[in-house]
Amino acid sequence: MKAHLTIKTILAWTILLLSWSPQVVVSQVVETNKGEVEFTSHVPLHTFSGVSKELVGKIDFGTGTVDFYVDLSSLKTGIGKRDKDMRTTLEVDQYPFAEFFGSFTKPMNLDLTSDLAVEVKGDFSIHGVSKEVTITGTLKKKGLSWQLDASWSLLLSDYNIEPPKLLIMKVDEKQDIRISSLLSPESK
């Protein structure tokens, strides 16, 4: 009886400890909090971009999950007033993040040293609206880290965002998004 209890207790404690540190089981986790995200907007006769270098992201190769978010207040277009207009348009106080959570659509060979074409499918959320999207990109191994580059486009109307006006010119519905990030092994 005593032996039975001891084994059961050890098993319980082991599972509990493992559950506190799932990366022990799934070791291939890389992350960043300094990734770059850029959007490009078009208005007649003019194009402008907004950049943030505060993209936070995590890829778990063990479970195949991909999780990224950016604080929309960190996006800078180079003109303070325009940044303020953008925060107002996106209602940043109410919806502070643009985020993606999904998973790889296919298994990958992580031993490849060349660029690895990847595809993820999941929910992209902004302005309080989530939509399922499929995004393609590349992963490239750099030592213990992984360089991720991806781009896609979104329509503002899909996310209930009213395109802002620059004087009488309306910003185009379609926004081009690009992310670039070096993800390093998770610090324990």
Binding site: S19, K58, D71
Partner: peptide, 21 residues
Amino acid sequence: MGFFVFVTSLAFGQMKRERTT
């Protein structure tokens, strides 16, 4: 408890969203 935390940590592996700016 262990099973619950373990399973939920795998199933809901989203990071906690924190303001950076």
